[in-house]
Amino acid sequence: MHQLIAAPFLERHVLVRPGSRGGALLPEPRYNELRALDPGEPAPPWLAGAITAQWPDLDVAHQLLGEFLLVRRPSPWGYGKASWEVNLGCNYKCKHCYLGLKMNSGMPWEDKRRCLDIMAEAGVVFLQITGGEPTIDKDFLRAYRYAWGLGMMITVSTNGSLLWKENLLRLFRECPPYRVTVSMYGAAKASYDELTRRDGAWDQFVQGMNAARHARLPLRMSIVVTDDNGHEEQAMVDLCTSWDVEYEVFTNMTPTIYGGGEVLTAQSKEHLRLRKTFTGCNAGHTFFHMDPHGLVSICKIGRDDQISLPHEGIQGLARLGAIADRLMLRTGGCSGCGIAGTCRVCRPLAKHYQEAKAPLEAYCQHGEKKAG
């Protein structure tokens, strides 16, 4: 079982370690040298030195390469990152959830495995497994382990309610994740259970966080601020600080992936914040998203013109860049806008807001001016 991964990543080559946030850049000749070496050979001195410099607790000087290192093959496709909704089902019914309907449906295991193989072939090094709640999926354990075995650095996005389960903790001990991102919906039982619409959700969250912290998982909190818990924003921040866990605060609600506006009622108007100017992204070019049925889109928001990975295989990804470029064009209510160059949301997200008939100030500078 590997402890380190050497892989092409975008236009560079990296040396990374599952469970560790750090890494090292590899000059291309060094990466090619590692590809050419036999797994039964000892680690070259330069590699052992680089590993000790980056990870002092890891001594490979007397180990064979195949005992600790997985060398990923180069890919002509150039996709370094991907996200995967393993399931839309969830054990919560959060008022603000952008996924809308919660359906426990997806692909059979063989199709999931094939899609993961295709992701690896496409060059994906960093994979986010999300949902719904991914840990309730019947195939989560083996899907995670299989992706990990392919040499992916995995982030799990979860509500944390099941992180106390021994089978999950064992999996993360044996196959360390790159990160476990936990959504936080309140700082007290009343607000947390109200937002998630599940009695006992707070208790399970605390149980999961206690177990995750004890296991020293690489945690990051996503603090979600809504109308129900807005008064607890600072308390949520303070709780993360007391746990010594990094966090990010999210205050702006978005419509569902179907363009529904029903979740926008969870928005705390007092906490609605101006987004930074959208300056473009690599969605569809170096990153893609896959839903539970193997349908690939440029990202979680821009789901038009999806590609079926199980049916089309890796060749289907050849169309993704053109789809991304088309979806980013200003159309509909945004065509001809004189200040589109300083818009704060991408075109696919603006389209969702328009379909949801959301207040203009929620996503557009024109609305901000009127509101002011």
Rank of each mutant, 00 (worst) to 15 (best):
P8V: 08
V16T: 10
P18Q: 09
G23A: 07
L26K: 08
P27S: 03
P29E: 10
Y31S: 05
E33D: 10
L34K: 08
P39N: 05
G40V: 08
P45Q: 11
P45I: 10
L47I: 14
A50V: 15
P56L: 08
L65P: 06
E67F: 05
L69R: 05
P76A: 14
Y79L: 13
K81P: 03
S83V: 09
V86D: 00
V86N: 05
N87L: 13
N87Q: 12
Y92I: 14
C94H: 08
C97R: 07
C97G: 12
G100C: 11
M103R: 14
E110C: 07
E110D: 15
D111Y: 13
L116I: 15
D117K: 09
A122M: 09
P134I: 13
T135N: 02
R145V: 10
A147Y: 04
L150A: 03
S157E: 05
S157P: 00
T158C: 00
T158M: 00
N159R: 02
G160H: 01
E166N: 07
R173Y: 12
C175K: 12
S183K: 02
Y185P: 00
G186R: 04
A187W: 09
A188Q: 10
D193F: 05
L195T: 13
A201Y: 01
V206Q: 11
Q207H: 14
Q207T: 10
N210T: 15
H214K: 15
R220Q: 08
D227P: 00
G230V: 07
M236R: 04
T241I: 04
E246N: 09
E246V: 06
V249T: 08
T254W: 07
P255Q: 02
G259V: 08
K269C: 15
E270F: 13
H271I: 03
C281K: 03
C281V: 14
G284F: 04
H289D: 10
H289R: 07
M290F: 14
M290W: 14
D291G: 10
G294K: 12
L295Q: 15
D304N: 12
D305T: 07
I307N: 01
I307W: 06
G316T: 03
G316L: 09
G316I: 06
G321I: 01
R330F: 03
R330A: 12
R330M: 02
T331I: 06
G332I: 02
C334M: 01
A340D: 04
G341N: 10
T342V: 15
C343A: 12
R344N: 05
P348C: 07
L349H: 06
L349Q: 07
A350G: 11
Q354E: 15
E361F: 15
C364P: 02
H366M: 11
H366P: 00
G372I: 13
